[in-house]
Design a protein around this nucleic acid. Sequence first.
DNA 1: TGCTTTCCATACAGTCCGTCCGTAAGTTAC
DNA 2: GTAACTTACGGACGGACTGTATGGAAAGCA
Lengths: 200, 200
Amino acid sequence: MESKRTQASRTAATRAALVAAARPLFAERGFAAVGTDEIARAAGVTRGALYHQFAGKTDLFAAVFETVEAEIAARLAAALGDGGSGDPVATLHDGIDGWLAACADPEVHRIVLIEAPAALGWERWREIGRRYGVGLVEAVVQGLLDAGRLPPQPVLPLAHVLVGALEEAALFAARADDRAQATADVRAALVRLVDGLVVP
Amino acid sequence: MESKRTQASRTAATRAALVAAARPLFAERGFAAVGTDEIARAAGVTRGALYHQFAGKTDLFAAVFETVEAEIAARLAAALGDGGSGDPVATLHDGIDGWLAACADPEVHRIVLIEAPAALGWERWREIGRRYGVGLVEAVVQGLLDAGRLPPQPVLPLAHVLVGALEEAALFAARADDRAQATADVRAALVRLVDGLVVP
DNA sequence: TGCTTTCCATACAGTCCGTCCGTAAGTTAC
DNA sequence: GTAACTTACGGACGGACTGTATGGAAAGCA
């Protein structure tokens, strides 16, 4: 079968090809430094296809960003799902490890943490991020509050503060000379941070 | 006097005019969206002067970024200098307040936290930031370690984690609908965070 | 004052984004 | 099956922007 390609499959194929081609380019050289012609050629199509499938270069980047975010969220959800039955604080520690491991990949932290805020603007960046990574942190914090492991307080401010700590920790670890050592160090700092928050 | 302008003063005047003109433009529309011609016209010169004084658009942005960072650092150093004789934890609380107040200005947080990482790259961003805001946090953490108010640990990882928390807190507060409420909320979250770290 | 260096304005070349139009591939109606 | 229509795509054009090269004015120095 599949001798006759349907429109939907054509569209899906070209969009996927463009996203897959743009991802390493954006990650390597940044949003502004890579042109649409290079992306289209790498995807085996022309700029005409790109501008038919996406509203523009920024929209294509948003699609790449969403793909990366979805991968991280799925990875973290899987890791957190395993420890869901145990101590919520232990779950949080697992989440820290999973996050740092995911951001070790330059394709992740360069796109998610460096390029996306400027390319999409902070509001749109956070709006998308809230459906993925930020949303996970919110859920974990809410779980801790429900379990009485945190003093009563609004969820969102604490979640944002923790997200900021996690993001900068990931960049510090990923860009360090000795990444293994740096990862262990920031992990310890993050664990001390969250352990100081929770009540027995 | 001043009928006869010296070369040094000419250079200083044009550089200052360009930096002053570029600052609100970059803050309002972002690094990529504002052209060099618009900056030059706003400064009352031409692009020729811009490219004579700066290596390029990125270099001009770096100068703007350094100016903003220097202002924040001076402001925080003044606030922290007053409380230097008191409790180091109280000093840290004052630092949080000063930081949140400084980042309430869009010219600050848009340039420092959104545009700079992508425009300059993370390494250069942090290299400059370390001479200003990040360096202050490092000093405060080192002071807490010396005073025995923190369990022994490397300074840099904890400083970066705290900087990340502070940065995201500032963005959250600055972009919220109810900024006063959001500022109070993230301030409380940050205070709980650092209070959980220190030992009596 | 005459010469050199610094500072700056103008003109030019190269690149890149977004849009427009024509064509091909796929879908629906009869 | 084929005709009418919609969707996907390639190629080319126009506009904007960055960085550079060239010529002249202002300042430093003898």
